[in-house]
Design a protein around this nucleic acid. Structure first.
Lengths: 351, 351
DNA sequence: ATGAAAGCGCTAACAG
DNA sequence: CTGTTAGCGCTTTCAT
């Protein structure tokens, strides 16, 4: 809190009017003599007056600040969401208080508590776990905290949230592999905590549905049971390697996200398998650099910037309308981005 | 600002003591009868009391919040810095108000003004331009605002900042290319605004110095003069393509950052040149996925998380000590990460 | 058209 | 060991 600048009282004294009049001039509210107004504005400028927003916040019981809690910043995933939120916030004169839970539910609670103590007007959060903080969130909602969940949700919780239809994404990815003639398609996931996220569950369900449509009822999942190591790329590498060494076979991989896909591809290669000739791989998220890896990754793109934008808009709406507005659960549709890792072009004879 | 919860007055009334006593109990300060204390704490818990940090901020003239202004969130670059800042902030009970300037100096000023109006205790900013806001920053510093610049600085400004020794990075990258026998090495940059950033200038100087050491005095820069298009990868693609089409030649590329390197590599390939056989490429930043692109990118790694961490620590120090502490300009040393795009392994016969 | 006064919820100096 | 009082800088009601 640097430079002790002039406050409204100083201006009032300087001009010889009351604080109230200064207020009216500054906000152009109520009747005020144009000349008085001008004089006040003039002096305010000379003194370099700047409103003290914390004083205002205390008075009006509103901070014009939202809290944003994400699981992690690594990868381009939350970066884009952040940009979306930032955009809406800036154009509505809101501030964004950001903090990272690093996937830790306890830390998530502490962060939210802190944000609430700072009296943010609302919260956007990507919850680390669908169950562990359920009660906590129920209480928040019961006590009228404006909150919108993103990316993952907490089943049964009556709140706003916005995410991708992960089930559809998983379906599209898997169907694409099936259409390329792949029949032994494995699902590669990413650590036990993440595995419980609704986003991941959705992707898996889509995978299962696509298989079922081809009368393939056996799902194979690589990952569960392994120690949770990071980064996810390493986790996937060891999951796939382990499976291959046990004699497991596959001709298609649906990776729960692009990082996992990178790890899977490396494992496949190190095992002497070619991608996409021997095994087709599809990822999820369309990370910024997935177009540049080798082979360029076929993946499911989520409209991440849009998720941030919509979440922020929804939150502001909720803040303004309070409980009156109905809960909204916005699902954005993902898109399959076909590149080389699945072999579609190979198959099409374009190679 | 949801749920109107109990305040200190409510507790005081409930327990039958004064607000001051409640204060003492809550903060465990001054003499207070253990029993009174217990009773107060008990009631506070029952009422779900939570301190109102905005009221406290107003009173103590300190918000325990820092502002963080970055130029963009795309790519993993600022993500890691953000994590570093977030880490330090969290462990010191500070909040982080984040906003993005998108490289626009005017927006940068507006954001900072807003953060200052919100009375952040200090600022961490990656300035969009080294000149356009010079006066603005001079005024900030003159009015005692605690501020630490990151990544780029404003020459001649007496303030704290932390960045990488970009000159050294540029030197290491270029020397590596020279040691591989490359002699016609071009520098590929990224748009006119970015080109003015001190970080970019430093990299170029390092490039020049390395060349000079080999008695190569001709520097070749690709990019200047072209229309500023985004993403940078596209910009680099067209810069390199353009040069090649004009009959330009090269056997080495030092790209100002990894995104630019990706674009350069693609342009080279599309022109029938092989990387690294015909042209060696080195990037800068060591983006998360640079290990996965094809060929894996040789690049200069900046300790980004560390930059964020140090910047935040420095800022907190500055906030606490005010003007007394001397200005610190911390430079962190970058490291060359040798992968495949330069052909080092090729050369070493390890292929 | 302007002003007086109260109060948001907390901290802190001072008094007892 | 506890209470009284003032005040951070602003907004807002009520009065003039």
């Amino acid at each position: 809190m640097a430079r002790q600048r002039a406050d409204m009282d100083t201006i009032a004294r300087e001009v010889g009017v009351s604080k109230t009049t200064v207020y009216r001039a500054l906000h152009n509210k109520g009747r005020i003599h144009p000349q008085t107004r001008e004089r006040i504005l003039q002096v305010a400028r000379e003194l370099g007056y700047r409103p003290n927003l914390v004083a205002r916040s205390l008075r009006v019981q509103k901070t014009s600040t939202v809290g944003l809690v994400v699981v992690g910043l690594a990868g381009s995933f939350y970066s884009h969401i952040l940009e979306g939120v930032d955009g809406v916030a800036q154009s509505n004169q809101y501030g964004v208080l950001l903090a990272c839970s690093y996937g830790n539910p306890r830390k998530e609670r502490e962060i939210i508590q802190m944000l609430l103590d700072k009296r943010v007007d609302g919260l956007i959060v990507a919850p680390a776990d669908p169950e562990e903080n359920r009660e906590f969130y129920e209480e928040l909602i019961a006590s009228q905290v404006s909150i919108v969940l993103i990316d993952r949700y907490i089943p049964g919780l009556p709140n706003d949230f916005v995410a991708t239809t992960n089930e559809l994404g998983g379906y599209l990815a898997t169907r694409h592999l099936l259409q390329l003639g792949r029949r032994r398609i494995v699902f590669v996931s990413n650590g036990s905590r993440e595995r419980r996220a609704t986003s991941v569950i959705g992707r898996f369900e889509g995978y299962r549905r696509a298989l079922a449509e081809c009368n393939l009822c056996e799902t194979v999942e690589l990952g569960p049971g392994l120690p949770d190591i990071l980064p996810e790329e390493e986790y996937a590498y060891s999951a796939v390697t382990h499976y291959l060494q046990q004699g497991g076979t596959m001709d298609g991989v649906f990776a729960v996200n692009d990082d996992v896909a990178y790890g899977a591809i490396r494992a496949l290669r190190d095992h002497g398998l070619r991608v996409p000739e021997d095994v087709s791989v599809v990822g999820f998220d369309n990370q910024d650099t997935s177009a540049f890896i080798f082979p360029p990754l076929t993946t499911v793109a989520q409209p991440m910037y849009e998720i941030g934008r919509v979440a922020a808009s929804l939150l502001l709406e909720r803040i303004h309308k309070g409980r009156t507005a109905p809960q909204q659960q916005v699902l954005l549709v993902p898109q399959l981005v076909v590149r080389q890792s699945c072999g579609a072009y190979l198959k099409a004879g374009q190679r």
